[in-house]
Design a protein around this nucleic acid. Structure first.
Lengths: 344, 344
DNA sequence: TAGTTTTGTGCAATCGATTACATTATGTAA
DNA sequence: TTACATAATGTAATCGATTGCACAAAACTA
């Protein structure tokens, strides 16, 4: 009843072979116009649709791409995925989404099941720094399918990546705070084993040095990217003798927590303390006290990552391509850090 | 080199047939312990991994599920997808994401390519009200795979859905505004051809009636769910003779635009105008003037939709199951609409 | 010991499409 | 008419795993 029509069904009806039907449908040159027309007409009449699974098995290409992220319900990752999907769908690929929740075991399991599902490539943002030392990770290389990192990358030779210049972002943000007159600048960081956090930190440090401000280890706080942690961190900081007058947070959520706590204590933003976040989450723009932040152009990042995949998957020569795309971050200066007009 | 080991490779090494290897790997009862151990050891040594594509072709089950949404980078849809993915991954399914961008042609194309890719089911939020009248939509039924609507559903007999009670949500929100003393309540609506918007509207209307407030057609504005449209709508409304003292918006974004415009004109919230939005987007909570809104428990919605799929896909009898799950919306009362303490 | 059951393997078809190679049919030139 | 090029179609293998059926060997049974 709900049985699908195959090329064999068409062949039987027309008293020809499946091979001929296949050739007709694929517009092969070695077919008479008459037969082709007959086949196309019959295929149409019988509602024939190609079974991509059979094709996938035969060709070894599933036309599916795996995308691995820590979680999908953050605006940044959702936007990257949006870019990836839009680009790849137009090229006949489907995007399979998987979330690691920053859990190493799940991350490994996901890689394995994606490989078994014969995906044609994997685009991922790592959650675990040592994942690439695992056996399952090597299976990706053995299978010779493209692997592309976006945002959170591991440094592996021969693997392409699309990231933003986190050092520059950290540098710009910090320099902006200094220009606003801040002298005691705190950095709310994350897991510095991850490049993104480490580079933002390094940019921060460099900006201090370039401006002749002494680096103070106590001003660097490693926390999770949550409102709660941002709040707690600031609570402690405000008790310090040399309480800060500027905060550069590697996360918008932590920045928000910081702002809430600061206001709670009756301290004024930006007059007393300037705050800059990171990621341009939608809420940063919408708040009455809009939050300065760094935009990572996530949709574009996704589109580019997809492009890199397409380049590599279509590359027939055996040469390994390593493409490292580094996007330029944009510092968005908003109310939370703007004491004086921006100088150019 | 990067060649994959198949059961044939294992068979050859052990001088047995692929059938035996298959039985050993699948723990079939008709196999000697000795052979099974040998096979397992060899499979392990050769890094054998099952090719799911071959299995999929043979069994007719791809273990992939298609999820169709208007766009993924809104917190609501991203959260629903999160719920779906978490639930289905645990059951061995992969989630293929597709975005329609509210474009009817793309929506149809997506359905077609998902069916050709042999997905085992489709979970979708429709963007186009008449989509189900199209031929491609019927192919889903012909194929007898589960179709589950979430949030934006079409009313088709025999099709399951997971939604929230939008009527109740609209009713509660409006009644709350009335309790706050609002008498001239505007409703920012959407495309009322879609059930979700129509039901919110009906709930709004019913609440007015129950409280003896006359319904005024001029107070119902149909706009897109954007900040810009919310802003524009309010601009016009404030020029009316009977300018509103309450706004129930079917969208958080439109509510935000409304609030911005109201404040812009120096009118006070909630004192002069109360505002309630819809969807509990993260920013509504974070703003200094937090926005009252309706929570739709999206992650739970996704998990339930996945459950309904699992029930149906495992259902062997031919009986058509139609399951309609309706979640209870939660009205979150925040600063934008709270003049007096909430009564119980 | 002959007959019967049990157990473990092999054989071959199947899922649906593609494609190198073989074969037949048609057309053209001498 | 013969010879050969060309065009169109058929045959069968292939992708990798599963599984009904056949069959042989081992294990019981009487």
């Amino acid at each position: 009843m709900g049985k699908k029509t195959t090329i064999y069904d068409i062949a039987k009806k027309l008293d020809i072979t499946a091979a001929t039907v296949s050739r007709a449908l694929n517009n092969s040159p070695k077919i008479s116009k008459k037969t082709r027309d007959l086949v196309l007409e019959m295929a149409n009449k019988m509602n024939y649709e190609q079974n991509k699974l059979a094709l996938a098995l035969k060709s070894g290409k599933s036309n599916n791409v795996g995308v691995i992220v820590p979680r999908i319900d953050s605006n940044f990752f959702a936007s990257v995925i949006r870019g990836i999907e839009e680009n790849l769908f137009a090229h006949g690929y489907h995007v399979i989404i998987c979330q690691t929740h920053n859990n190493e075991n799940i991350e490994i399991e996901i890689i394995n099941t994606l490989l078994n599902a014969q995906v044609d490539g994997i685009l991922m943002s790592i959650s675990n720094v040592d994942i690439y030392k695992k056996e399952s990770f090597n299976r990706i290389f053995k299978k010779q399918i493209p692997l592309i990192f976006f945002d959170r990358k591991a440094n592996i030779e021969g693997v392409s990546s699309v990231t933003i210049n986190d050092f520059e972002a950290g540098y710009k943000a910090t320099k902006h705070l200094i220009k606003q007159g801040c002298k005691k600048i705190v950095h709310l960081s994350g897991n510095t084993l991850l490049d993104i956090f480490n580079n933002r930190f390094l940019g921060y440090k460099q900006a201090l040095e370039d401006e002749g401000i002494e680096f103070n280890e106590d001003y660097v706080i490693r926390i999770k990217s949550t409102v709660e942690d941002g709040r707690k961190a600031v609570k402690k900081l405000l008790k310090l003798k040399k309480s800060p007058d500027g905060i550069f947070s590697s996360s918008d959520y932590a920045a928000l927590g910081a702002i809430q706590e600061i206001k709670n204590q009756g301290i004024k933003i930006p007059e007393d303390i300037c705050v800059v976040g990171f990621a341009n989450e939608p809420f940063t723009k919408f708040m009455e006290l809009s939050i300065s932040t760094v935009d990572q152009s996530p949709v574009e990042m996704g589109k580019i990552a997809a492009n890199v995949f397409l380049e590599q998957v279509n590359n027939t020569d055996n040469a390994k391509i390593e493409k490292k795309v580094v996007l330029t971050p944009e510092l968005l200066i908003r109310k939370s850090s703007l004491k004086k007009p921006v100088s150019n």
